[in-house]
C-alpha cells in the first residue's frame, strides 16, 4: 500500500480543484441541526468535524428516486430508452468507515447475483474517500459488528487527521489514479501508526452471544413488547446505509414517461400488502422484527455479511427513540 500526506492548507485546494475539474463532490454539510451529504460547490461548505451524518451517502449509488428507463409512445409502438450514465465522476468525500463498509455490502448485494445495471453505472463512476473517526458518541457501535473506526473497507482513499495534515492511505487503483491526477497536493510519507488518531468505540453488545440467539429469534416472545413505541415512520430504513428496498413507479403523460425506482421500506404496512388485502406482516412488531432479523440474520445467511454497520443513524433519527443496541441486548439476554 502507498501512503501520502495532504497538508491542512492543501486539502482546501484539493477539494476545490476536484470541483473545478467537473467532479461532483458529495461531502458532509450542515443543514439546520443536522449534517447531510450534499453536493458542494466549494470547500467552505464542508463540515469536517462531524460525528455522523443524518443520512449515509448511499444516494450516490442508490438515489432516492432513479430512472430505470424512459418510454415514448409512438402510435401503437413504444420506444424504450436506457437512462443516461452520469457524465462526471462522483467523489464521496469524508465518509465514515462504517459507511465504507456499507458500500462494500451494497456492492455485494447489487452486483453479486443478477447484477444491477443502474447501481453499477453509478458505483463505477464513484470514488469513495473515507475519513477515520477521531471521536464517536454513545450511538456509535461499529466495533460491535466487526468494523473499526479506521476501517478501510469500501474506501478508495482513507484519510486520517494528524497534527501535520491528513494522512492518506491509497487503498485501490481508483484511489491511486485520483492521487496521481492531483499529485501536487500530496506529499510522500512513510506508513504511520494510526492508533492514537482513532476513536475508541466501545462494544455495545456481545456479537457472539447475538449470533447464538439470533437464528431462533423469530419466535422470541418479546418482539411486540420491545417494539411498542415504534409508530412506523420508516426513518430508520431511509437513513440506513445498507437498506436497499425499493418500489417501482411510473410517471407518464399521453406521450411517454419514466419508470422510476424509489426508496421503500419494510417498516410500512403497505410494503407487503397483497392486492387481496392479505398482509403477511400485518403488525408493526412483525415489521420491526423483519428489520432486525434482516440486519443480523438474513443477509448473514444470504451473503455471509451482517447488514448492520453500527453507524447509529437509526437510533439518532428515531422520533420514538427506539435503539437497535437495546433491542439486540434484549435478544441476547433472552
Amino acid at each position: 500500500m502507498e501512503y501520502k500526506l495532504i497538508k491542512l492548507e492543501k486539502i482546501q485546494e484539493f477539494i476545490n480543484s476536484l470541483i473545478a475539474t467537473g467532479k461532483q463532490v458529495l461531502a458532509p454539510k450542515q443543514k439546520k441541526e443536522k449534517v447531510f451529504f450534499s453536493l458542494i460547490h466549494s470547500f467552505e461548505e464542508i463540515a469536517m468535524d462531524y460525528i455522523q451524518t443524518a443520512f449515509s451517502a448511499k444516494s450516490a449509488v442508490f438515489p432516492k428516486c432513479e430512472e430505470l428507463y424512459t418510454f415514448e409512445k409512438n402510435g401503437k409502438e413504444t420506444i424504450l430508452n436506457n437512462p443516461q450514465a452520469p457524465e462526471n465522476d462522483t467523489i464521496v468525500f469524508g465518509m465514515r468507515p462504517c459507511d465504507g463498509a456499507a458500500f462494500d455490502y451494497l456492492a455485494t448485494f447489487f452486483l453479486k447475483e443478477n447484477p444491477d445495471y443502474h447501481f453499477k453505472m453509478r458505483y463505477d463512476n464513484t470514488i469513495f474517500v473515507g475519513l477515520t473517526c477521531s471521536s464517536g458518541d454513545e450511538f456509535c457501535f461499529c466495533s460491535s459488528v466487526g468494523i473499526s473506526p479506521s476501517d478501510t473497507r469500501g474506501s478508495d482513499l482513507m484519510l486520517t487527521k494528524t497534527e501535520n495534515g491528513y494522512y492518506v492511505e491509497i487503498i485501490t487503483e481508483k484511489g491511486k489514479k485520483l492521487v496521481e491526477q492531483f499529485a501536487n497536493f500530496f506529499e510522500q510519507i512513510e506508513q504511520i501508526d494510526k492508533t492514537k488518531y482513532v476513536a475508541n468505540i466501545q462494544k455495545r453488545f456481545d456479537s457472539s452471544a447475538l449470533k447464538e440467539k439470533i437464528s431462533g429469534a423469530f419466535d422470541w416472545e418479546r418482539w411486540e413488547e420491545t417494539s411498542l413505541p415504534c409508530f412506523g415512520c420508516g426513518t430508520c430504513a431511509f437513513s440506513c446505509p445498507t437498506c436497499t428496498c425499493f418500489d417501482i413507479q411510473d410517471e407518464a403523460n399521453l406521450l411517454g414517461g419514466t419508470r422510476y425506482r424509489i426508496w421503500d421500506t419494510c417498516a410500512l404496512g403497505i410494503f407487503t400488502k397483497h392486492a387481496s388485502g392479505h398482509n403477511p406482516r400485518e403488525k408493526q412488531s412483525e415489521r420491526w422484527r423483519n428489520r432486525i432479523l434482516h440486519k443480523f440474520l438474513y443477509t448473514d445467511e444470504q451473503f455471509g455479511i451482517l447488514s448492520c454497520v453500527g453507524c447509529g443513524r437509526c437510533i439518532r433519527n428515531c422520533p420514538a427513540e427506539l435503539s437497535i443496541i437495546e433491542q439486540v441486548n434484549a435478544i441476547t439476554e433472552g
Partner: peptide
Amino acid sequence: CIRCYACRAA
C-alpha cells in the same frame, strides 16, 4: 423530501 411519510406516521 424522501417520501418516507414519517410526518404522517407521527
